[in-house]
Design a binder for these strands. Sequence first.
DNA 1: GGGTACATGTAATCAGTTACATGATTTA
DNA 2: TAAATCATGTAACTGATTACATGTACCC
Lengths: 185, 185
Amino acid sequence: MADLSLTPTSYLVLGLVQMLEPCTSYDLKRLVGVSIGNFWSFPHSQLYAEPVRLAEHGLLSEEQEHHGRRRRLYRLTPQGDAALRHWLTVPPDGVGELRDLGLLKLFFGSLAATEDVVTIAEAKRDLHDGHLRALEKLHQEVAETATPEQLATMELGRRWNKVAADFWADVATNPPGRGTTDPAT
Amino acid sequence: MADLSLTPTSYLVLGLVQMLEPCTSYDLKRLVGVSIGNFWSFPHSQLYAEPVRLAEHGLLSEEQEHHGRRRRLYRLTPQGDAALRHWLTVPPDGVGELRDLGLLKLFFGSLAATEDVVTIAEAKRDLHDGHLRALEKLHQEVAETATPEQLATMELGRRWNKVAADFWADVATNPPGRGTTDPAT
DNA sequence: GGGTACATGTAATCAGTTACATGATTTA
DNA sequence: TAAATCATGTAACTGATTACATGTACCC
């Protein structure tokens, strides 16, 4: 166990390799696209760079073609497997942040015109709605092949996008602080 | 308008300065702590570094003490104000990602022992519960002083933490794929 | 008057992104 | 065989984090 600091990305790669091994970076990319990418995305270049790092530290084994595309084939080493399994036993110590640009804009919304706030809210509502549908479609497609844990993560994604879509719909029809909350009084 | 690429952090700083001006980096830090920090956090060093960058490009004005702590006092320039207001009119083009470590671990949960999944779920449930309470307390404290838009962002934070807490509670009592879903059949 | 907590900043490092570049395969 | 698309990689840059370092005020 070398003293290499593993980032979340590292474990993500270790986990994906475990699911697919032996596999290439492109295999990882495809799997990310239909699974983790829905709640944790990053450019493909990292899926090429990170395995190299992990292999240098003995957590993955690397086998490179000598001809043609010279692509690299990865497998978990026993050390990599151990690191992954150990990581899975440690409870996380914080809650993930929303880091949502729309939310940031809403926070400063008192500076903006009402129509701009409404436009933003409508855009966000539609985006979350779209994601919601995409997730539901995906859920059906992989219901047979995915693990129950993977289906569970999709379920949280579903609930979150539902909550967000509803929230932004609220904001769009009833912008905060614009005095249209109760026309009666 | 110089051709400087502004990151979300840049706008965040511009917005905060707008709320507090004139202000020091430490003022920003305190405000972040009780507001945006709840859904978009970063180390204090950025709140010292970013205003310097913005001042170099003419979006903030900087006034440094010559004695004592030599601290810097920032204000929005007309350009900074314009940049902020323009940004607020552009709808965001994506949904923020969850990027939650717990969710990542759950995704790979089929590799872990049931008890580890349960431990993680319980930890997450408690963390989100704690956040939920903290947000509710904060909401009461600032209900009079915050803008309606700011209160709205807290409301989304509330709903999200509620959904997440419920989800993880589900997982804890009923780990996916462990066959305890319906004891009857 | 020494310790502890608050306040302010900078230097060094690095993960992650952007951009570039080219190889292979299909299709028209 | 040209064009488009899929696949594979690397180089360069930089925002963000980590770590360090010190100044000021308050408290016992």
